[in-house]
């Protein structure tokens, strides 16, 4: 489903110094998989995440989602693809504090280019119920707990029916117990609803919960 082949990412630092963040990365993630990408900081896992999440483009190599191959596209196309393909869950939750929970969940639909084949409000309410956030629709993110905020973020990630969820250290800002609950939720989504999940983490214990682990070090898969 997600297929990367010979992905390289280079950054020009000073004059002639080039930093190879990613070296010849080739990997495939199948539909319905729960994959963890692990590696220490500076390993290139964030760069890889940005490329898989369509926030950045590789210097060379190809990336494809299903039969949709993405290379050398405009910034606008990349934005549209992000809206249709990826659902992000971040370590910092990254909810917009001045928007209500409901508005936050609905935000991706505002930027959708294609005609939606579902009613956004209905779907948002369904997700709110599904994640035990009833009664919080009109609350603001800074008025609810971290665990609840992360559940709002997951609801937001799911509203556009993305091809996969890209979770970047989703438990990093939570206590152990709440972190476990979030991982459990992601596992459930994967098992019950066959949602593809790519989890990026530096924590091997969390990575163990995934069905497959991709280890990355110094820009290479090991």
């Amino acid at each position: 489903m997600i297929s990367l082949s010979n992905i390289n990412k280079e950054y020009k630092l000073d004059h002639d110094v080039v930093f190879h963040a990613l070296k010849n990365i080739t990997l495939t993630i199948k539909e319905g998989e729960f994959v963890a990408i692990v590696g220490p900081s500076g390993s290139g896992k964030s760069t890889l995440m940005h490329i898989i999440g369509l926030l950045d483009e590789p210097s060379s190599g190809t990336i494809s989602f299903g039969n949709q191959q993405i290379s050398k596209v405009t910034d606008d196309t990349l934005s549209t693809l992000r809206s249709e393909i990826v659902g992000f869950v971040f370590q910092q939750f990254n909810l917009i504090n001045k928007l209500t929970i409901l508005e936050n969940i609905l935000l991706p639909t505002v930027y959708a280019r294609k005609k939606l084949d579902f009613n956004p409000e209905e779907k948002a309410h369904y997700l709110i119920k599904r994640f035990g956030l009833e009664g919080k629709e009109r609350s603001y993110p800074n008025k609810i707990s971290g665990g609840q905020q992360q559940r709002v973020a997951i609801a937001r990630a799911l509203i556009m029916n993305p091809k996969f969820i890209l979770a970047d250290e989703p438990t990093g800002n939570l206590d152990t117990k709440t972190g476990k609950e979030i991982i459990k939720l992601l596992t459930e989504l994967n098992q019950q609803e066959k949602i593809t999940i790519v989890l990026v983490t530096h924590d091997p214990t969390i990575a163990l919960l995934a069905r497959r682990t991709i280890k990355i070090r110094d820009g290479e898969i090991v």
Binding site: D76, S79, E84, N94, L95, M160
Partner: peptide, 15 residues
Amino acid sequence: KEIGIRRALGARKND
């Protein structure tokens, strides 16, 4: 930060 979030969720430059 808000701009970044909106961009990640699919907002284009013109949006």
